Amino acid sequence: MKNRKFKFQHRINHWLGDGIYFFVNDFEAASWWAKNRFSDGVVIYGKLQIEKDNLLDLDTLEGAKKLELVIDDFKKNGYDINLTDEDSKFIKNHPKDLENIQRSKFLTLASELLDFKACSYSFPINVKRYDNIIKYGITPKERQLNIIDQSIINFDNLSFKKV
């Protein structure tokens, strides 16, 4: 953190496009991820303040409509998502990731056209241990925030906790 910048690894199947991911208000999910991803995992936490114009919040109708307009305009003009040979090979080996790849590509395009610096969405999780509440229409979700432009991060507000 000395240089006040996170490094991230490009992946074609990032859920919300390339960037720095945070779990929102969910230390348990962040801890689980850190423990399973790294042998010496830490959770980075803190208060991130993002101006409304810099955030595409896909949990809101407003955010969903903005993305829908980008996709509709894209398709109306006869464009489609181009998959590289690398993308096609990856999809062949990971067919369940097609949706993630397409969403990632559209969100990357939308971030350029709409000029947002972060994107958030609550992804439903289907874990058997939640069956007792799922049957009542409560779907557990993990809200994720992808920071695309790190200039909006105040690194002084971040802390670390080993998990």
Rank of each mutant, 00 (worst) to 15 (best):
E68C: 14
K76F: 10
S31E: 11
F160H: 12
K96V: 05
L16N: 01
N132I: 09
D26F: 12
A118C: 08
N77D: 15
N36T: 02
D80S: 11
I134W: 01
N154I: 08
L83N: 05
F23D: 03
Q150G: 03
D131G: 10
D73A: 11
H94L: 03
D80Q: 12
L61M: 15
K141F: 00
D72L: 14
D26W: 02
I81T: 03
K66Q: 12
I125R: 10
R4K: 10
E86R: 09
Y121M: 07
I101Q: 04
I20P: 01
N82L: 11
R11H: 13
I133T: 08
K161A: 13
V24M: 10
S159E: 12
L98T: 06
I133P: 10
G17L: 01
V24A: 10
Q49M: 12
H94I: 07
Q49V: 14
N157D: 05
A64L: 07
S39R: 15
K128N: 07
N25I: 14
K161F: 15
K161H: 14
I20F: 00
D59M: 01
G137N: 03
F27E: 07
N126H: 07
P140C: 03
N82E: 13
I148K: 05
L55W: 00
N54Q: 09
I134R: 04
K65D: 14
F74R: 09
G41L: 07
K35F: 13
Q150F: 00
L145R: 05
N157Y: 04
